[in-house]
Every structure is written in structure tokens, then in C-alpha cells.
Design a protein around this nucleic acid. Structure first.
Lengths: 185, 185, 185, 185
DNA sequence: TATGAATGAGAGTTCATTCAT
DNA sequence: AATGAATGAACTCTCATTCAT
């Protein structure tokens, strides 16, 4: 599994052969099939693990006893950190989802919708509390989360700046916008 | 080419065979090699075309005689519309970039950096003019553009709302943030 | 095809690899797939060819202007000769039918039922004409045809006796029985 | 063994994996090798058991104090009943014999020849007694026994008619032939 | 007696690409 | 300009069997 995550991340799902995975764990490729159902299974397991973790985390955050705006900020921050801290798994998750078969894609899609919905509800709560601007919630979710997801495309852990700083900055951008002054308010 | 774009979009690069492309254009698969250098060439051409178009467009926008904030808004809007209007090509561009060989990836990366740099410079111009908040320009670029790029994952043209509206809303979110009141100002 | 027939006959369907077929025709095994859909296709084609030929032949014989008993004798004789003359194909047909997938088996089964039904009708015609004993027609068909089919298990073309003789003898056994005297008459 | 018989019958020898046999008996597949020498051994044992049983039975029948024609009728009847009553084993026996290695096939072939020879001798005894028509004994054996063997291809135990009836009818066909009147006598 | 990890050979199949025509 | 036969390497996956425990 760890080997698969590493290889799928480095070379991509299609470009990784079972032979390479087997080599990485010092087994014959046939031997892998004692542990897994097949190559796609490996991907499915990774994917499901990621989304489950994310859904769990977001549910926790929503339930916290904090002002809604702080909870939303936390949600965004944790989303970002979740990517940066598990760059390999999340790169696979975000990049290879269309490599799954239709059924698995549907399952995955349903879980992802759950995540989006939770985020939208959190946002709506913030709007109701007067802490967030009233906008199309779906669009907010997609825009904010999309901005975060893009992280996997450029974040490299060996960067100088701390991850917390970075997350804080992104949160600032998304919450406050980039426009100056009253124009956006 | 058009056939390749359609098929790469629908099925993905790896899942599309030369046979399918040949079928789509009514040729034998061997005959394709009179027109193209190979499968990866096809992808490269699509990719390069997209990024060239984007670079050209952004250069134009930057050079316009408009207040910088309007130019930046336009840049974001055009970025979004460029995706939505060429969903197939841009899906391929954003999704399949790692299917390219290392050299092509480098070439492509250089062009993409150019685009990002232009955007960052535009942003910086806005900061200098006092129209945009002073933030890490790289991060702003990546966040704003990332939010836009995510569009390819969920935008479907048959939606009820107009594309212009949608673009305007996204611009509003990114420029103004989602937080309410003076807190973000 | 001819190579497949020979190899399937000699070694059996499962024991014949695509590699061996490819070797037999001087091609790479991948090259076979320009001509066939797969290994099972090869078998299906052989099977369908055999049963079609048999159905055609029996329909012809039934329609002949001959006394019904002669037509039935001819049917049995031709059934036998058809096996002996195409021992390879008929061995495959009779021995490997369960190697087909369920759908192909059903198709094949339907055609085989057609053959049996034609034979039963011919028999019934003979009964109506008073030329054949009235017995359960299904059982007659299965018994007579089963006796013939068994030929593929022991007939070897290099035997001394002529095939016509042999067929005549089997016809005699099946029509006249093996019991002596009036007991069976 | 019972599990193997069932599975070989249902799916065929090649289509049955050791895993499936192990599952059927609630063992791990490695554990099977404490009891058997291998997959082919399993088949060999089944085969040998069948032919031994048949040889024993036919020897008994030959030795009975009955008119030869009755003994021959009995032999045919028991041959049929032996198939119908042990459809799984006999299907395997009659269908999978070519799945054996050459040596086992030779051993098996020798035993089968013994059976045929006994049958031919019984027939010859009947001819000598004037109770059976003088015909080529080898051909009689192959034809009569072939007709019987075919039973495994169509007999299904849940049929309405009794097995005894069926056997009697087949015996009648084979002994008396299907032709009417003196023509066959 | 039983496990189950591991083997290793081989299966059928796919596919981008080449090239003589 | 186009064919289509052919390649050859790579692919995922299966399976009977072995063996240390």
C-alpha cells in the first residue's frame, strides 16, 4: 500500500506497473494478489481512505463549539494541511479519480458530494450568523475548495515557509478576497 | 485533432487508443502517422495550443488601457470563460499534463510559469495602485488561478445560469472574499 | 483457423496456447488479434461452422425424394461420415463444447436442438409410414445420434476397412438392432 | 474428493481451481496437499474408481447364471444406470479423460479396453448361442456402449420418467433396432 | 494437521508504432 | 495519401504448487 502510494504519486497510476510495485516490496508480482484484488483495488482503497478521512474531519470541525467563522477558517485550514501533509495520497486522490471504473467513481462521487454539502452548510451557517457574505453556496464551496485543492499541484514540502503560515495566508485570501478597501465590502 | 480532443476529454488520454482516433476520423490507424508523430505528439500539440492561447490572451489584457483592478478582474473572468468555452481542451490540459514525457513537461511548465508570472505582475501592479491588498503574489496567483482551474471539474455547459453570471460571481468571491463586514477589509 | 483446428484437436482447447497457434502460423501471438477476437472466438467459429454444416445437410436429406427409411439411413450415414471425414473439427465440436461461455453455449445448444428435432421428425415420418418402429422419438434421436457421435472417440482414418463399410455396418446395427430372430421384430 | 467431483462436474476440470476445492472443504488451498498429490491426482483417482467399478460390475454380470441375452441386456442396463446414478463422476470420466497426462491416459485406456473386450466377449457368446445377430463385435461394442455413454450429455435426474423405464427403452432400441418388421431381420 | 505467504511460469490480451505496398 | 499486416514489448492477472512454521 505504502509502496503503491509512493509509486502512483511519482509516476502516475497508469505509468505504474504491478511489476514495479512488486519490485518495491521485494515480491513477485503474482504474490501481490494475496493481498489485493488488483491494481484498481489499490487505487480504490487509497481514494476511499482519503475521502473518509476528510469527511470525518469536516464533520468534527462543524460540530465544534466555536464561532462559525472560526470553524470555517479551520475547515479550510485543515483541508489545506490535509493535502500538504499527505501530498502523495492527495495527489493520487485529486489526479487519478478518473482512472477508476464507473461504479467506484460513483461511490467516490457520492462521498465527495457529502463533503461539499457539509462545507456548504457550514458556509450557510456563517451567512445566517452574519459572519459571511451571502453568496451562492455551491459556488463558494467549489471556488474555495478548488483553490485549496490546487495546492497539490504546486506545494512542495521542502519549501522554506511554514505550512501553518501558508495555510493562514490562503485562508486570508479566500476569506478576505484580494481586493483592497471598501470596494469589495 | 478535433477527434483526439473529443476522445481524450471523454475517455482520458490513456484510455483512448489510436484505433479509436482512427475510427473517429474514418482512417486506418496506420494512416494517422502521416499526419502526426505519435500519440503523445497529439497531446503535446493540444497542450501547447492551450497555453499559448492563454499567454497571448493574458498579455493582451495586461496591456489594456483600463484601471488595473478591472484588468485583473478581466483576466480572471477570461481565464474562467476560456475553460468553460473549451471544456474539452482545457480538461485535457489540466488533467493530463503528467502524461507527457519529461521534456515536454518542462516546456509546458515554462509556459505555465510565464502565465503565472504575468498574472502575478498584474496583481502587483494592482497592489502598487492601491487597488489590491498586499499579499504574497505567488500565493495569490496560485490560489486565484487554482480556484478558477477547478472549474473544469464541475462546470457543465448545459447548466441554467449564464456563463457570464457565473464568472462574475467567481470574480466577486475571489476579489471580495467570503467574509462579511469590516473584518476582511 | 486450420492451425487452431489442428492444435485444439491434438492438445485440447485449454492445453493450446495462443503462443502455439501463433508459432504454427509463423506470427507473433499479438498479431493473431488482427484476425480473430480472441481464443474463445476461434472455438466459437469452429463450433458454429460444424453445426451449421450439419443442419444444412440434414435439411437436404429430409427433403429428398426417397422412401423415408432410406432418408433416415442416409441421415445416419452422413452423420457418421461427417464425423470421420472431419475428425479434427468434430472432435473439437463434441469434446470442447463446455469450454464456451454461457451465451455461446446457448446459441450452440439451440442449433443442436434444431438438428435433433429434424432427426426426430424424420424418424416420426418413418413411423407414420410404417417403416420404423414406434418408439419415444427423443430417445431414439439421442440414442442413435449418441452412438454415432461416439465415433470421434475411436475412429482413426488409417484403419483398414473402408469408411462406407463402417457406416453401413453402424446403420445396420442401429436400424436392425443386435438381437437375433423374431424377438425384436 | 466429493467436493472435487462436484466442482469438476459443474465447472469442468480446467475451470476448477484448487482454491475453489479448498473453499468447498473449508481448508486453505495449501492444506489440500496433505491429502492429495495434486490436481491431476484428484482426477486420476476419480477416473480409476469409475472404470474399476465398471469392470467389476461387468465381470459379475458376465458370470451370472442367466441366458446370455439377458446378461447382455443387463450389462447395457447397468451401464446406463451407472451413468445416470453417478452423473457427476461419469460426466467427469467421459468428458475429462483427455485432461490426464499421457501415462495416466494409457493406464486408463487399458482398463477401458478391458471393459470393451468383456462386452465384446459377452456379445460373442450371445452370437454363439444364436441369440444375437452376428456382426463385427468391436463395432457392436463401440456403437452400443457409445449410445449409452451419450447419456451423460442429456440425462437430467429430475425428469419425470423413471430411470428403469428409460434404461429399458434404450435397451429395446439397441437390441431391437428402430426399423420395423422383417426388413431388419 | 493446517496455515498462508510466496513462488514462478505462463496465460490471454492490448497497443503504439512500423513499413512494404 | 492510405492501407493493413505485422511487430514486440508490456500489461494485468491466474494458478498449481511449495514450504517454513
Amino acid at each position: 500500500m505504502a509502496a503503491a502510494v509512493r509509486l502512483f504519486h511519482e509516476r502516475g497510476f497508469h505509468a505504474t506497473s504491478m511489476q514495479e510495485i512488486a519490485d518495491a516490496v521485494g515480491l513477485q508480482k503474482g504474490s501481490l494478489y494475496h493481498y489485493i484484488g488488483g491494481k484498481e483495488d489499490l487505487l480504490t482503497v487509497i481514494m476511499m481512505e482519503v475521502i473518509a478521512r476528510y469527511n470525518r474531519k469536516l464533520a468534527e470541525i462543524r460540530a465544534m463549539r466555536l464561532p462559525v467563522r472560526q470553524r470555517l477558517e479551520l475547515a479550510v485550514r485543515e483541508h489545506l494541511i490535509g493535502i500538504a501533509d499527505n501530498l502523495a495520497m492527495l495527489t493520487i486522490f485529486l489526479r487519478e479519480s478518473y482512472a477508476l471504473g464507473p461504479e467506484q467513481q460513483e461511490l467516490l462521487g457520492a462521498e465527495m458530494t457529502r463533503y461539499n454539502t457539509m462545507f456548504e452548510e457550514l458556509y450557510l451557517e456563517g451567512v445566517a450568523a452574519g459572519e459571511l457574505r451571502p453568496l451562492d453556496p455551491k459556488l463558494v464551496g467549489r471556488t474555495v475548495l478548488g483553490a485549496c485543492n490546487w495546492l497539490y499541484r504546486w506545494y512542495r514540502p521542502d519549501g522554506g515557509r511554514s505550512l501553518d503560515d501558508l495555510a493562514a495566508s490562503v485562508v486570508d485570501i479566500l476569506l478576505g478576497g484580494i481586493a483592497a478597501g471598501p470596494s469589495a465590502c
